[in-house]
Amino acid sequence: MSDQERIAGIVAEHEGREGPLLPLLRDIQAELGCVSAEAEAQVAQALNLSRAEVHGVASFYHDFTERPDPRPCVEICRAEACQARGVEALMQAARDAAGDRVRLADVYCLGLCSVGPNAKLDDAVHARLDAAGLVSLIESA
């Protein structure tokens, strides 16, 4: 099945839904690993929006990417509370552990401020990380 057909399928699943754009983009990102320019255009056509509008929405959210990145992703909180609890000191070790194999993404607050530094891999949030904990999390990715 071509990407175009897969997107058409996702569009069909959301037919009739109020405010379908974000759920649709999320499903496309999950299914195809990215929201490409072609996907934006196809969604625009399907929802009778302009290509620019869809791009404006898709480019606003970091979770939608223009190209697929097959690498695993570890999201590290860099917000104030985690900074106060020492996340900055862990970053060099994290980068060394990640290399080119793992993608590190900065995020701002995972909602566990009292138990930072925090990071997220897949759907699990890991708290109270020290350098060793973070490195092993990255290595496990």
């Binding site: 320019a37 934006e40 290509r51 620019a52 509008e53 791009h55 404006g56 480019s59």
Partner: peptide, 16 residues
């Protein structure tokens, strides 16, 4: 549209 967010916000004609 406005491409991106925050400091990266840029006016954009159409898509990337």
């Amino acid at each position: 549209t406005i491409d991106g967010r925050g400091f990266a916000s840029m006016v954009s004609a159409g898509q990337t």
